[in-house]
């Protein structure tokens, strides 16, 4: 009976083991990169909105405070999307005839909300509350980026769990004084390590064990 395998088959078999491991590694690496890509996280993706609303103009150029529109950010889990009435506070007089604002006026006339496209969409198995983050010294721009530079708002952060944890494991690297929460130009390098530790103590931020407990976010 003839040999079924050639003599070199031993080497092929050994090499195939190495190649299999290498291929597996490459596949795993590709998987991690795809999972983190903006293709899946929607990071940096500007959404088309029903009205060409510019945050850059309203908060950057006009200096309107975030809380003028997002009134519930300090008291509720949701920062709040303003009702059309808030737009009309100014736009009953300013640009009151502009065709760009017709969807706003139509919404006000017909008492139907403007259907904005949600930019930051957390998965619903994750609990998130704006008010506690603001109260404990996390500023708007820490997560949302410099909104005052965004004509169309995009998602600055990946919103993935590893991103949440990067702060929950090490909150003192990200917090700022209460007076600077809504300052979008805030530079975190302004604080020394001691000041950060002091802030963390003043805010009574809980231990890393508490902040990274499963049920802190998945409740």
């Amino acid at each position: 009976m003839a040999q079924l395998f050639h003599r070199g088959a031993n080497n092929v078999a050994k090499a195939s083991l190495v190649i299999a491991v290498l291929l597996g590694g490459v596949a795993f690496y590709v998987y991690t990169q795809v999972a983190r890509s903006s293709y899946l996280t929607n990071q940096f993706l500007e959404k088309q909105q029903p009205v060409q609303f510019s945050h850059k103009h309203h908060t950057g150029d006009d200096g309107i405070d975030c809380r003028y529109c997002h009134t519930s950010v300090e008291t509720s889990y949701s920062a709040g999307i303003p009702p059309t009435q808030t737009c009309m506070n100014c736009h009953n007089q300013l640009w009151a005839d502009s065709p760009y604002l017709e969807p706003v006026r139509a919404s006000f006339r017909d008492n139907k909300p403007i259907e904005w496209e949600r930019v930051h969409d957390l998965p619903e198995y994750a609990y998130f509350n704006h008010s506690i983050h603001v109260a404990k010294g996390v500023g708007c721009s820490t997560c949302h980026g410099q909104i005052d530079n965004m004509p169309a708002v995009y998602q600055e952060s990946s919103l993935q769990m590893e991103w949440c944890l990067s702060c929950h494991r090490n909150p003192e690297a990200f917090i700022r004084p209460q007076s600077e929460i809504y300052n979008q130009e805030w530079d975190g390098n302004d604080l020394t390590v001691e000041q950060r530790q002091q802030l963390k103590a003043d805010y009574k931020i809980r231990s890393t064990q508490m902040l990274t407990s499963c049920s802190t976010c998945h409740r």
Partner: peptide, 9 residues
């Protein structure tokens, strides 16, 4: 799980 059949704000 991402979009559960319930209504949030």
């Amino acid at each position: 799980m991402q979009d559960q059949p319930r209504y949030k704000a």
